[in-house]
Amino acid sequence: MARFRNNKKKAFVKPIMKKQPSVDHITGDKIPKSFVFSRGKMPGSLRQLQMDLRKLMLPYTALKLKEKRRNNIKDFLNIAGPMGVTHFLILSKTETAPYLRVARTPQGPTLTFKIQEYSLAVDVAHSQVRPRCPKDLFKNPPLIVLSGFGTGEQHLKLTTIMFQNIFPAIDINTVKLSSCERIVLLNYNKETKLIDFRHYSIRLQPVGVSRRIRKFVQNHQVPDLRSLQDVSDFVTKAGYGSESEADDEAATVTVPSDLGRVNRASTKSAVKLQEIGPRMTLQLMKVEEGLCSGGVIFSESDHGKQKTQETEVEEKEEEEVMAED
């Protein structure tokens, strides 16, 4: 019986960070923090997805959160308060599909997404010729772009707010553009009712400079001048212009301050995005009032039949699929 004695013990979680501020020191906003964990037994690929999500949520998340099977949501909730954790991302799995629940602590609401398809960061990196991962890519929180959510439906608005608040807010006046290195995109497709979840890295490239000179400035390597007659050829001779090099006007920005060696202030720079993964296709299945409990505000299965959302609040139906914890 000794084995079961410390059932009541709180989940042991390492102190996440060494005195991370809970409040932004410039804007004074509260910094949202998150836990990413999974419920139930997970196959390897989903565990990897959980790890990828944690990396995505960096730096305000517990990267090495340890969980045990006997930890329930209450355990996480207990430590969430003192640590200032505001959001839970919970992965779970049923026979049909994996699920992702995004919840606000401590009161909810909880959004339940069915993961229709997903690709890991590793898969994405494998699919690319030159996967890019600078050293401090994950040192700053990502930006978030929500697109196509403006259909006026309540649950979509709620989703928008939830995801907007999951990352720290940016103050336009004080933000350093060099700290904007990643972007999370959520694109809602009206026809299929699916949400595309993508994660990109942002790179700025100076416009109007030949590729050779750009590479020279970036790499600091002695260029190969054997084939040239004169040094001036190196500057004047145009390299190959590939199709992707032709920058469209829409993707150019003017940088207010120097960004690295290459992107100088008040020069035009092109915004280049490269996917870093993970990639998910989500379907919003259910919205609950509480933290994985409480009344169902929105349910995909109900939504098809009856459009009135007011009555749905009254109906307290629990889908049996996710009715654990």
Binding site: L143, V145, S147, I170, I172, N173, V175, L177, C180, I183, L185, N187, D196, R198, Y200, I202, A250, A251, T252, V253, T254, V255, P256, S257, V271, L273, E275
Partner: peptide, 21 residues
């Protein structure tokens, strides 16, 4: 999707640029 994301980034960067200039 990349286009949408790029648009968002450009918009933000331009806004930041204006505000900080």
């Amino acid at each position: 999707l990349i286009g949408v994301a790029t648009k968002g980034v450009v918009k933000l960067f331009n806004a930041v640029n204006k505000a900080q200039n």
